[in-house]
Write a protein that binds this DNA or RNA. Structure first.
Lengths: 130, 130
DNA sequence: CAAATTGTTCTAGTCAACTAAGACACTAGC
DNA sequence: GCTAGTGTCTTAGTTGACTAGAACAATTTG
């Protein structure tokens, strides 16, 4: 059962955090079509956000066709986002873990790591020009 | 000269995006103490946000001691965040680029990649339990 | 069938983010 | 000294995010 977290200090609206976490879970294969999301009340209990906020997130996900809400029953996953095979994901994850280990050894913190990935993905080879 | 972007669709407040971009630039070594940030008016022209919004970002950075604003002159970097040596960063970046290349071959998109890194950094080995 | 559980809707309010516009104070360069 | 460029501040307003509380409708469970 997937568990959601809402971090109030990062600036991203709570409902978008929930949306993002569902998308991530779909990406990583933690959620698949047919799975049931935590109920609105469960998310409320776990994260402390207002039910309307959870509903807003779930409604967004429903709008893009990723989930389907069934009143009286729950909210179910309808589609997936993951595209790579589980085996490849496992392999890529292992490689990444190794890389992260090296990065940690070099003293990198989370923010460094995210920044570096951002730069690599942006293909920004001209980062610093001064 | 670092260039800021503000993406209106991601949900993160504009001012926080600016703060984040400065932090990233510091992390990656693109900005160093003594460097001047783009002027408020430059950021306004480039990103279309209101001057007050840029000021809010710069003030946040000033509050945590990363930059220093000099009226009439500009806003200057005062401290850095990067901790690893440039050589190591180059090495880690090259490795990460290689990994990303493999991930792309496997069909991963940005969101997959970010999700995977998030999971690895969270050390969450129990992702899916159902 | 009744109770429990689920999603759903509504109203009213607060707060943060952001904008527009204008003007001020200070610095830098000529 | 003057001009241009810099950060700074103020006021007033809009919008989005989020909350609280209550109640409803539908489904599930015993």
């Amino acid at each position: 059962m997937v568990e959601f977290r809402v971090d109030r200090s990062g600036g991203l609206p709570a409902y978008l955090q929930l949306v993002q976490q569902v998308r991530e879970a779909l990406r990583l294969g933690w959620l698949a079509p047919g799975d049931r999301l935590p109920t609105v009340r469960e998310v409320v209990a776990a994260s402390g956000v207002n039910p309307n906020t959870v509903l807003k997130a779930y409604r967004e996900l429903e709008l893009v066709g990723l989930v389907e809400a069934r009143q009286g029953s729950g909210t179910y996953v309808k589609a997936t986002l993951g595209t790579a095979s589980p085996e490849l994901m496992v392999e890529l994850r292992a490689q990444l873990e190794k890389w992260v280990h090296g990065a940690r050894q070099a003293g990198l913190e989370d923010e460094d790591i995210h920044a570096l990935l951002g730069a690599v993905l942006a293909g920004d080879m001209k980062g610093k020009e001064s």
